[in-house]
Amino acid sequence: MKKIKFGNVISHFYLIILSICAVFPLAWLLITAFKNSSDMLNNPTRFLPTEWTLENFNTVLFGLKFTINIRNSLIIAVSTTLIAIIISSLAAYGIVRFFPKLGDMMTKVLVTTYMFPSIMLVIPYAMVMRMINLTNTRIGLVLVYLSFSVPYAVWMLVGFFKTVPIGIEEAGRIDGANKIQVFVRIVLPLVSPGIVSTAIYVFINAWNEYLYSMILMSSSDKTTISVAVKTLQAADIMDWGALMAACAIVVIPSIVFFCLIQNKLSGGLSEGAVK
């Protein structure tokens, strides 16, 4: 007969509390987005709205023209992801196959560049972008976003490329394929699941980014969604319903994608350190 362990009950209890704390802000954000303003004013602690409304989304998307900013964010995040993944998978494969010693330094390189404060990097970015006339352009912002996506993506991908057995590649080489053919036709398909998770991670980070976008994109029709939402907060009349609807639009893609890759997220760090 199974007996119920005291430790297990405590664990469940603790995890339930943590889960509620973790999820509550998301739930509150989403529910507020469907509330009307009188609900919020009359009873701040009432959980469900008296009447569900889409008015807030209507205000945000069409009244405030957030569709333009969503489009900007999508273009910028997708371009960043594509470019970063191409550069990083080449580099990760190169490190694993041709420069194994460089691979041992990887963690140190990553931690070193990770130390650079973005507030320090943004100073020269702003100066250079103005010099080469890329301020307020999507290209400029994508270039800047590579600074944080490439190092991290390389690091994640090295872990995945390490799992490809060299025997398969040698077979391809004997059949007369050159290095690039081997890479594209044999190695890439084998690591595609790893590439997909890395791409999702890069996308989320680019989609969520705020500081660079705020400093480098000055006009409201060019800027990304985070900055657009922030300007809404600075407006004279705080419309919390609309603000939360805007937040919902930003947060939902992140959370959906994040849940898709949640199993892979811990891989890099523990493998990288334990070897």
């Binding site: 995890l15 943590l18 889960s19 973790a22 999820v23 802000p25 998301l26 509150w28 954000l29 507020t32 989320i204 989609w207 969520n208 705020y210 985070s226 939402v229 922030k230 907060q233 919390w240 603000l243 939360m244 937040c247 930003v250 947060v251 992140s254 959370i255 994608f257 994040f258 849940c259 949640q262 997220l265």
Partner: peptide
């Protein structure tokens, strides 16, 4: 429990502000 990790900083700031 990992949901907070997925939050964009703008959403963290605004939802807590709210």
């Amino acid at each position: 429990m990992i949901i907070p990790w997925a939050f964009p900083s703008i959403a963290i700031a605004l939802v807590w502000d709210w």
